[in-house]
Computed example of a mutant assay.
Amino acid sequence: MANLFVLQLLNGVQLGVLLFLIAAGLTLVFGIMDVVNLAHGVLYMVGAYFVATFAALTGSFWWGLLLMLPAAIAVGLILEVVVIRRLYARSHLDQVLATFGLVMIANETVKIVWGTSPLSVPTPELLSGSIPLMGPLRYPVYRVGIIVAGLAVALGLFLVINYTRIGMLLRAGATNRAMVSALGVDIGKLFAIVFTLGAVLACFAGALIAPILSVDTGMGESVLILTFVVVVIGGIGSIKGAFLGAILVAVVDTLGGVFGPILLREVLDPSAANQTGRMLAPMLVYILMAVILFAKPAGLFGAKA
Rank of each mutant, 00 (worst) to 15 (best):
N3C: 01
L4F: 06
L4Q: 06
V6T: 13
V6A: 14
Q8W: 12
L9M: 12
L15H: 03
G16A: 02
L19E: 04
L19A: 08
L21G: 14
G31L: 10
G31A: 12
D34Q: 14
V35Q: 06
V42T: 10
L43F: 15
V46H: 11
G47Q: 07
Y49F: 15
Y49D: 12
F54Y: 13
G59Q: 03
F61N: 02
W62E: 12
L69V: 14
A71M: 12
A72H: 04
I73N: 05
A74Y: 04
I78V: 14
E80F: 08
V81Q: 14
V82C: 11
I84S: 02
R86T: 07
R86G: 06
Y88I: 08
L93W: 01
Q95H: 11
Q95R: 12
V96I: 15
T99E: 07
A106R: 02
K111P: 02
V113N: 09
V113K: 04
W114Y: 15
G115I: 01
G115E: 00
S117H: 07
P118M: 12
S120R: 14
E125H: 11
M134D: 04
P136K: 04
V141T: 08
Y142W: 08
R143M: 07
G145L: 08
I146F: 08
A149L: 08
A149D: 03
A149P: 00
G150S: 07
G156N: 03
F158E: 10
F158I: 02
G167Y: 05
M168H: 05
L169C: 03
L169H: 02
L170S: 06
L170M: 15
R171C: 10
G173E: 03
A174S: 14
T175G: 10
A178T: 07
V180L: 13
V185R: 04
D186I: 08
G188V: 03
K189N: 14
F191K: 00
V194T: 15
T196H: 08
L201M: 13
A202F: 01
G206S: 10
A207S: 13
L208M: 13
A210Q: 03
P211Q: 05
V215Y: 02
G218F: 13
G218S: 14
M219L: 14
E221A: 15
L224A: 10
L226N: 09
F228G: 01
V229T: 15
V229Q: 03
V230I: 11
G234F: 07
G234A: 12
G235W: 03
G235I: 10
I236M: 12
I236T: 13
I239K: 01
L244R: 00
G245S: 04
I247N: 06
V249E: 10
A250Y: 00
A250D: 00
V252W: 07
V252A: 13
V258K: 10
G260T: 02
G260K: 00
P261D: 09
I262N: 04
S271N: 08
N274H: 07
T276P: 02
T276C: 05
L280Y: 05
M283E: 06
M283D: 04
V285G: 08
M289Q: 04
A290N: 03
A290E: 05
G302Q: 06
K304N: 11
K304Q: 14
K304P: 10
